[in-house]
Amino acid sequence: MKFLKSLKAMFLSNPKASVGASMVLIIFVLCFGAPLFTDYEPNARIARPHQAPSADHIVGTTRMGRDVLSQTLYGGRTSIMVGFVAGGFVMLMAMVVGISAGYFGGWVDNILSFFTNMVMVIPSLPLMLVLAAFLDQVSPFVIAVIIGATSWPWGARVIRAQTLSIRNRDFIHAAEVMGERKRRMLFFEVMPNMMSILASCLIGTIIYAIMTEATLGFIGLGDPLSVTWGVMLYNAQQTSAIRIGAWWEILAPSVMLASLAIGLALINFSIDEVSNPKLRAQRIMAKFRREQKVEAKKKAAAIRNAGSEPMEAKA
């Protein structure tokens, strides 16, 4: 009971984060607990093609007679894994490049920044397409690596800027004077102070990676035998699901993709709000103004009551 109450309090104190977190959680439970929600194998032909949603097949079947629900749930596993692997890879690159450029400065910074800017102005989606085209229909893991290798510069730039601003604060100079070792400085002085930026960067890249996987899969670069949301959309498009009116085939992976992205974006949004002092101040001010208004209403009511009482007394 107490647990529920504290949960409710948390929910009310930050509704955006809570809605986002529950959306993500629900999708995780659905995908990773897929066998609990569907009896069919994702790649088994179990019915006639393009069946409309019914009690047996809650979101219908594909052209190949496969159950859309089970494909969506099992495919989600791969899509989410690709997102997280690619996101982690991007973060690693961005952190190594960003923090060392910002922290060491001088020629290290010059070289790394030059390289970062160079990779950044080369459009990443076309680059990925070229890479994937030459590798010819690649596995989901290779897609994650390709996304990671082409998408780190943005994060590196953000992290570098943040490191630069922390670098010149007094406590870093103090630590230097105390003779702390470089490694300790980086991991125990600089990094903890940019946790919120790192977190929001990580979530941002995960959203980006999941979207990109869907895009690459949809264009037909994924392994057609693997089941991911992108490949599902590709198969639906290839079998002209739209023209036939098989909306369920498009809608199921679309809804999952969109809700996952929206959920993660809402979490990111509230991380920004909590970590940016100016945005936080504005929330506190809004609360203060609301309370002031209530206060003022109470006062007005009290005055009105006070005004009406003598009248009654006179009468």
Binding site: I207, M211, T215, L233, L257, A258, I262, A265, F269
Partner: peptide
């Protein structure tokens, strides 16, 4: 935030 985080493929489809 909600609208812009919908993947381009999904929105367009």
């Amino acid at each position: 935030v909600v609208i812009s985080s919908i993947p381009a493929v999904v929105m367009a489809l």
